[in-house]
Design a protein around this nucleic acid. Sequence first.
DNA 1: CGATTTATGTCAACAATACTGACCTAACTG
DNA 2: CAGTTAGGTCAGTATTGTTGACATAAATCG
Lengths: 176, 176
Amino acid sequence: MLKTRSRSAPPMKLAPPTPEVDVGDREMRLAQDLLFFAYRDFTTVADKVLEDLGLGRAHHRALHFIGRNPGITVSGLLAILRITKQSLARVLNTLVDEGFVAQAPGYEDRRQRLLTLTEKGQALERRLFASQQAKLAAAYRAAGPQAVQGFRAVMRAVMDKGARDYIDGTGAAEDA
Amino acid sequence: MLKTRSRSAPPMKLAPPTPEVDVGDREMRLAQDLLFFAYRDFTTVADKVLEDLGLGRAHHRALHFIGRNPGITVSGLLAILRITKQSLARVLNTLVDEGFVAQAPGYEDRRQRLLTLTEKGQALERRLFASQQAKLAAAYRAAGPQAVQGFRAVMRAVMDKGARDYIDGTGAAEDA
DNA sequence: CGATTTATGTCAACAATACTGACCTAACTG
DNA sequence: CAGTTAGGTCAGTATTGTTGACATAAATCG
């Protein structure tokens, strides 16, 4: 970053870097960094694929959760994503119009629209998945199986109970 | 099939839940879920504090990284956040106007604006931090120290090299 | 059966963040 | 001095989220 220009000049001390009250503080702030960078870089790889198709992250999320929960209802999806139905409608309509997602009326309750991925949708989801998988698999290999277990434990504990239940459930959709 | 309100009705099989080609696929998709939910729920707790102040997540991020890197330059911050300077300017101007962030010209290069948190800014950062710390500390306790190590290892491996270097460096800002 | 609730959808407006492109100044550098 | 660099700013646009107000068909309740 510093080409040459700065010969030396003391690093300057303006203020202590975010004062830490106890030992744990340091690793807590580190964890904030970790979450930020890991999430950012993990999501970014898929963005490149989406860009060509004129889709965004919101579409990816819908695609992902429909893929993992075939036959999920609109409200099931809303509960997972925790966004308003108007926000979801926008992306969902696009996905349906472009043939990535299919809808079928529920037979038990015909008001419901059961969502599934079409062949085309599955293909796209796989493409998106592959882009992230490469990075993730490498990370898993680098960190080792033991670390992966720890990673999962911490991540599970960070999320809300609703999300944890969703994860634990075989992926039966519903709540979140 | 007409007035059926049969509360049983088979769970229906529309399609297999996102076909998995190999064993690893399953845990890879799980990891996607983990990242999504953990990041969402982790960031959300701070949003509540920000809301009262009319600030958003972008302000939080700037505040956080300035706090961790006192005296960071605008371009240093840009490199970390990876957004455009126009985007950063908007939040930074607000933070400066409202007295959360102070600017000082670099003495080595007087074009630079070295950013630091004011007292007020530090106070806010601490408040925001506290909200997330509670959740995170609980998660760390629940998962155990061994898991925390694994968590860190995986997160580090997921992020880009630039971010990893930033993390590893004592927080010397610069690249990312 | 009629009344109500539920699942879903739609229109419209607005807010937060991001982006691009263009252009400007002051200060450093060769 | 000429050129690059650090930073700023104006203007327009896109994505994704929000609220609020209604509309409709199907389920459910009394």
